[in-house]
Write a protein that binds this DNA or RNA. Structure first.
Lengths: 211, 211
DNA sequence: CCCTTAATGGGAGACTGGTTCCGTTAAGAT
DNA sequence: ATCTTAACGGAACCAGTCTCCCATTAAGGG
């Protein structure tokens, strides 16, 4: 969103920016909630501006004006999701923390509702550059929340100093997401556990050492 | 595709099955080629039945009748792609073979044309169950082609006997696809190399041992 | 080579999704 | 409390998609 059309100063800003109070915020909340529900229920291909407007109890003109297209909606939804971050856990050992992380990812992807939303969002990102950026941003913040865990593990000597935290975390998530998006295999607890063990083994071998 | 509506025997089979010769085959070829081009050029969201029909030089009725929807098209395209398999390499060492595999995946995803097709296909699979199955089938055959490589490596003693070949291969691919579909980071040669090293380290630790 | 009918193809019409217009509501400033 | 105007919402409007009907073409069997 935010078209950023810099013409002259007389150009009106994109809607919602000058008077973000009460109504505008309420509309955004209602629309994003409706969008999330729709995605969870019928997936991205069925995301329809008209229906969203109706189920959010909002004029469809508003939805079109502020979000433009289904992809725009998903993009904003991602920004919204990125804002609600949940803190990393601290179990005392790197293995434990990584396991908690993998389990969190697994639980999210496996949950009927959340899983559908993520599937939809990833699908949308494959269709639109802007949306892809939003998705990348979402995961960047998510990963950043967990990097301390790796740093602490390195400090404890569980893995070599200089291990790239992001790289290790990616290694944990990758097998889960690979199954989820590409091969559409079930993401079992077993898979999550193995992802952790594998990533940790590689890390101890110094595979993720920063250059 | 193939609705399998078992009513009475008077029910006509889906088009293209009773006279698959000349014309029918030619139409399918033209349409699938057009679809692939369209996906490579503008992605899944822009896949349009009318346009496909036009650029394939085929009546649009035919396209609607035989494929039904963009998703149906992609699904059939996947079946088509699954038929053309390319053999695994044999460099003499497991590390070399896996590197070749990772490099193949990387090259495919990085290639402007092929990358776009895969992105589109994965996106479509996120929208439709049938398409997801086709995609899963595609990767199953792909993986199966490479399993001998792992078996030979195990026979040479490079990794523990009883290592699950598919699991190891998935571990190699996962980081590449994770970047490609989820975080939309560039899939560099470096990433591919690290994926191989990490997977191999884990395999040597017996992480992928079959129970 | 001829016949039956599967499969295709063009075009009219319906439908859904998206856009525009303009009057109404209420945010935020004084 | 009042005023200005940002933002919303209803309804008419337009466009691109899809569906259906029926004439035409050519597979596959004799």
């Amino acid at each position: 969103m935010e078209q950023e059309t810099h013409l002259t100063e007389s150009q009106p800003a994109s809607p919602g920016t000058l008077r973000p109070g009460g109504r505008t915020a309420k509309v955004r909340r209602a629309v994003l909630d409706a969008a999330r529900d729709a995605l969870a229920e019928s997936g991205f291909h069925a995301l329809n501006m008209d229906r969203i407007a109706a189920s959010a109890g909002v004029g469809k003109t508003t939805v079109y004006r502020r979000w433009g297209s289904p992809v725009g909606l998903v993009t904003d939804l991602l920004h919204d999701m990125a804002e609600q971050s949940l803190p990393a856990s601290d179990t005392g050992s790197l293995a434990g923390d990584l396991r908690a992380n993998a389990e969190l990812v697994r639980a999210t992807l496996t949950d009927t509702r959340m899983g559908a939303v993520f599937r939809a969002v990833i699908s949308a990102a494959g269709c639109d550059e802007e949306c892809a950026r939003a998705l990348a941003g979402f995961y960047r913040t998510r990963l950043d929340e967990w990097t301390p865990v790796v740093a602490k593990g390195a400090a404890r000597g569980e893995i070599p100093a200089g291990t790239d935290p992001t790289e290790l975390l990616r290694a944990v998530s990758a097998p889960l997401y690979y199954r989820f998006t590409v091969t559409h295999e079930e993401v079992t607890a077993d898979v999550a556990e193995r992802a952790v063990t594998a990533a940790l083994a590689a890390a101890k071998d110094g595979v993720f050492a920063r250059p």
